[in-house]
Simulated assay, not measured.
Amino acid sequence: MSLTGDHVALLGVDGMTVSAATSGAAELAWSSDEASARLDDEQFTFGEGPVIDALETGAPVLCSALEVTARWPGFTAAALTKDVHAVFAFPVMLGAISIGALMCHRRAAGSMDKAAVTAALALADSLTPALLTDPDDTTEEVWSQQLHRAEVHQAAGFVSVYLDVSLIEALSRLRAYALSQERPIVEVARDVVARRLRLPGDSHRS
């Protein structure tokens, strides 16, 4: 299945992402544009958002006005600074198991109409085979951003070794630093990998 800007237009939204469920987080597999990818990064950084809720509950998450929700304080604040005012997430299911999620966002607040919700649910259902495809299968490029956050995981590995902490703790430290500096976690990770940044307590780095 190949997603394009036509799908964004069909659903009447300004951007879309597709995330794959992993053991530790939701990994971005595709985004319609850079702004959508950055919005997904905010969910990853804060550990909260519509995709995370859709994966956990296996049910659609429809938020027509971020200004009036207290559901995701960190993510919401970041989204509003990016002029995103409505978000909608639809789980990709394999039986009773959530294996991914489709997220749509809009600059204007307001509900998706019934036809758009129906189309989004159908689109999410159609993504199941692609999300089950082995990322190492090079016979076909199913997703354009399989390694979008590869540097984050690489940086977590660096921090884990140098600080002698678990990978989970290392990722937590990366998130905390990104939040404190109000920077995208991907940028922070890139600096760590390139040895341009030393996290607090990382005395072994040069």
Rank of each mutant, 00 (worst) to 15 (best):
residue 2 S to L: 14
residue 2 S to K: 07
residue 3 L to E: 04
residue 4 T to S: 14
residue 4 T to V: 10
residue 6 D to E: 06
residue 9 A to W: 02
residue 9 A to H: 05
residue 10 L to A: 10
residue 10 L to E: 05
residue 10 L to V: 06
residue 11 L to H: 00
residue 15 G to T: 07
residue 17 T to H: 00
residue 20 A to G: 15
residue 20 A to P: 15
residue 21 A to Q: 10
residue 22 T to L: 11
residue 24 G to P: 05
residue 26 A to Y: 12
residue 26 A to P: 15
residue 27 E to A: 13
residue 28 L to K: 00
residue 28 L to V: 07
residue 29 A to R: 07
residue 30 W to V: 11
residue 31 S to H: 04
residue 32 S to R: 03
residue 33 D to H: 04
residue 34 E to Q: 11
residue 35 A to F: 12
residue 35 A to S: 11
residue 36 S to F: 02
residue 37 A to R: 00
residue 40 D to F: 10
residue 40 D to A: 06
residue 41 D to L: 11
residue 41 D to P: 13
residue 42 E to K: 00
residue 44 F to K: 06
residue 45 T to L: 08
residue 48 E to F: 08
residue 49 G to R: 01
residue 53 D to L: 01
residue 53 D to N: 02
residue 54 A to D: 01
residue 55 L to S: 09
residue 56 E to C: 15
residue 56 E to F: 13
residue 63 C to T: 05
residue 65 A to K: 09
residue 65 A to D: 15
residue 70 A to S: 10
residue 71 R to L: 09
residue 72 W to D: 00
residue 73 P to G: 06
residue 75 F to M: 02
residue 75 F to W: 04
residue 76 T to D: 01
residue 77 A to S: 07
residue 78 A to P: 07
residue 82 K to Q: 09
residue 84 V to G: 00
residue 85 H to S: 05
residue 88 F to R: 00
residue 88 F to W: 08
residue 89 A to S: 02
residue 93 M to I: 14
residue 97 I to V: 14
residue 97 I to S: 12
residue 99 I to P: 14
residue 100 G to Q: 14
residue 101 A to C: 15
residue 102 L to G: 08
residue 109 A to T: 14
residue 109 A to L: 13
residue 109 A to K: 09
residue 110 G to C: 13
residue 110 G to Q: 13
residue 111 S to R: 05
residue 112 M to T: 02
residue 116 A to E: 13
residue 117 V to Y: 08
residue 117 V to F: 09
residue 117 V to H: 08
residue 118 T to I: 08
residue 118 T to N: 10
residue 119 A to H: 12
residue 119 A to I: 13
residue 120 A to R: 01
residue 121 L to W: 09
residue 121 L to G: 12
residue 123 L to Y: 05
residue 125 D to T: 14
residue 126 S to G: 07
residue 126 S to N: 00
residue 130 A to E: 03
residue 131 L to S: 14
residue 133 T to F: 14
residue 135 P to Y: 03
residue 136 D to I: 02
residue 136 D to E: 03
residue 138 T to D: 05
residue 139 T to P: 04
residue 140 E to K: 06
residue 141 E to A: 10
residue 141 E to C: 06
residue 143 W to K: 06
residue 146 Q to R: 05
residue 149 R to Y: 10
residue 154 Q to I: 15
residue 155 A to S: 11
residue 155 A to Y: 09
residue 156 A to H: 04
residue 157 G to F: 09
residue 158 F to R: 02
residue 159 V to D: 11
residue 160 S to G: 13
residue 162 Y to W: 12
residue 162 Y to P: 10
residue 166 S to C: 10
residue 169 E to K: 09
residue 169 E to S: 06
residue 169 E to G: 12
residue 170 A to M: 12
residue 170 A to D: 08
residue 171 L to Q: 10
residue 171 L to E: 12
residue 172 S to D: 15
residue 174 L to K: 04
residue 175 R to W: 11
residue 177 Y to N: 00
residue 184 P to F: 07
residue 184 P to A: 03
residue 185 I to E: 03
residue 188 V to F: 02
residue 189 A to L: 06
residue 190 R to K: 10
residue 192 V to C: 02
residue 194 A to W: 13
residue 197 L to S: 08
residue 199 L to P: 14
residue 199 L to W: 09
residue 199 L to I: 04
residue 201 G to S: 12
residue 201 G to V: 13
